[in-house]
Design a binder for these strands. Structure first.
Lengths: 349, 349
DNA sequence: ATCTCCTCCTTAATCCATTAAGAGCTTAAT
DNA sequence: ATTAAGCTCTTAATGGATTAAGGAGGAGAT
């Protein structure tokens, strides 16, 4: 069973390849009879239609948007923030009738050519650590690229929020409520799988720009309120999971004196902290206040959080790539809001 | 700024195109000096590397798996069952170093050629209604296809669970607890956006095979327990959302006599029913038992549900497509389990 | 000086289609 | 009868690469 191409059909019928092509792509160019016969033969031979790759080559468009996400694929799908973003970019892709090619990142030492070989018209890169090799590979492709959240690369379109301001907003909310013993739990500072206490050096050395800046917002707000940042217990986890959040919660709540409030940089982590509080019999918000981030999994749990327009960002990223306006600003900063729910209150008296 | 190809670089250096190709794909075939010069010129000219489409054409592989899901993209990403499945297939894709091309389904009347033009090596089709045009388009491509959940197409690999058995298991759980006044809330029976009571005819006319069979399991179990299915109130909703579940819950719980248990065909719907129960001040499980389906959003809510190996199914689908075993059975049926949590109990006395 | 073996590069076939321009024939209009 | 206009189909250029097989030149062996 050899390969069936336009030519096979053409030969079978004694017509030219062009004619067969027209039968598929411009039926009006052909007489009805011939067209029908072509279709019959195509069917008979088991022809799968014009080869999309060849078509794509000829037409110069791939019909797909490449998506690169910092995490492994299975994990990315588990992240509510990523999901929100996907929904947004999927909306744009759907409108334009193009697909979304989700690419696995070269993981571990295994070298892979997915970026080099991806048949896409443009790339959207989300949340890559500083200097990640995939970033260079993407730029080497010389196709349009937008970066979302991190890292900001001068000269290339960037979409995200004002991280320091958002971080400060979250922290200030707790400070304004009167909290002075604040703990911080963060994920996504490093790429090395470390879970445990993180000193100031390690905090500053974070390879994820957005998280680094978010954290700096926490710090700034705390210092403005007169806290000594060196005294703020800071627990870092390797994975953005509820279980990791719980672990962080236990670590932080085990300190003496116990924090009256915990800042987390994701909602999922915050949920885990709530679990830890429940484990310890602490009432939220009476005994402990908790703030999440991104409003991706916060509503049902009544979590106070910072809302990020993730869907809107995703959609904007898609549109930017699919119909590049000539005057796109290099950085587009989206709004964020403090959403106060039931997980925060003044500290216990 | 004209297009830069291998040839451009070759001409610039007075070497053949093949040489330049080797510089990129088989560096060992070239002297170091020439290779370096080629790379320099490539850089200088802004060459983006060998065109992936052309490469793909020549090599005869696309490096991507096509994924078709019944819902619109933004919605699919919101569905916990779909997410679980994505995670599974993403695992397989990642292992094989291929991408996942998520395709928008032709939506509404807008005709689109996404399936015809998708540059993929194989397709995975998930949960399409009977006779959906996309299915025919996929088969017309003559590439490997697996169908997950529905519809079963004889002669093509199929992955899913034993729907009637799973449905019956859920229903029997309630019946065994002693419930006799059972209500049913289902989503995904039809494609027409209808929300409201559904009679037996409409139930049987469902265009989603898996849901139809799942429902038949409910019915069979009820009839075996001596219930008259015609008396079982059956509410159908158009969207798999918590809000829709709440609506269904209110409808069902507003009946006289009030059901003591409600079967739902998704966890999300079940959560909505719990909301409705809360609205009405009904205690779960004391006053009302609720059963979900698929164990995709059930754990935290303490929902009794049927666990479906969605990740496992996704992964199996991916592997089946990426390295087709010669002896794959036509249907692969995955296990399901009843997970009893706190949302079910004997009916009130 | 001749033969052999490498190394490095070129030739040319191949992957599969799209589409502008033109050729041949029929039909209608003048 | 002649010409213009329409249909229908063909020609040929084009998109951008990969790779087996072969040729040219230099180095080493005899």
């Amino acid at each position: 069973m050899a390969r069936v191409t336009l030519q096979t059909i053409a030969d079978r019928l004694g017509v030219s390849r062009a004619t067969v092509s027209y039968a598929f792509s411009r039926p009006d160019q052909l007489s009805d009879g011939l067209r029908r016969r072509i279709m019959e033969v195509a069917d008979e031979l088991g022809y799968g239609g014009p080869n999309p790759t060849a078509r794509s080559l000829r037409l110069g468009r791939a019909g797909a948007l490449g998506l690169l996400f910092s995490e492994t694929l299975p994990y990315a799908f588990a992240d509510p923030y990523a999901i929100g973003f996907f929904q947004g970019i999927a909306t744009a892709a759907e409108d334009a009738g193009v697909g979304l090619l989700i690419l696995p990142l070269p993981h571990g030492d295994r070298r892979s050519d997915t970026v080099r070989d991806a048949v896409v018209d443009a790339f959207c890169v989300v949340s890559l650590p500083d200097g990640h090799p995939a970033l260079a590979e993407v730029f080497a492709r010389k196709v349009p690229v937008v970066v979302v959240d991190e890292p900001y690369v001068p000269g290339h379109p960037f979409l995200g929020i004002d991280e320091p301001a958002a971080g400060a907003l979250a922290a200030r909310h707790l400070l304004d409520l009167g909290h002075r013993r604040i703990g911080v739990a963060m994920v996504g500072l490093h790429d090395d799988g470390h879970t445990g206490w993180a000193g100031v050096d390690r905090q500053h050395g974070s390879v994820f720009e957005a998280m680094r800046r978010r954290r700096s917002g926490y710090q700034q707000a705390c210092e403005e309120a007169g806290l000594d940042w060196g005294d703020v217990p800071f627990f870092e986890v390797a994975r953005n999971s509820r279980e990791a959040g719980r672990k962080a919660g236990h670590a932080l709540l085990g300190r003496e004196p116990r924090p009256t409030a915990i800042l987390t940089n994701t909602d999922v982590l915050a949920l885990g902290v709530l679990d830890a509080a429940a484990d310890l019999g602490l009432a939220v918000p009476a005994d402990l206040s908790v703030v999440g981030f991104s409003d991706s999994a916060a509503e049902e749990a009544g979590l106070t959080t910072i809302r990020q327009a993730k869907q809107q960002i995703g959609e904007a990223a898609g549109r930017l790539l699919l119909s590049p306006p000539s005057d796109a600003p290099e950085r587009t900063i989206f709004p964020h809001d403090l959403i106060v729910r039931g997980s925060t209150a003044p500290p216990p008296a």
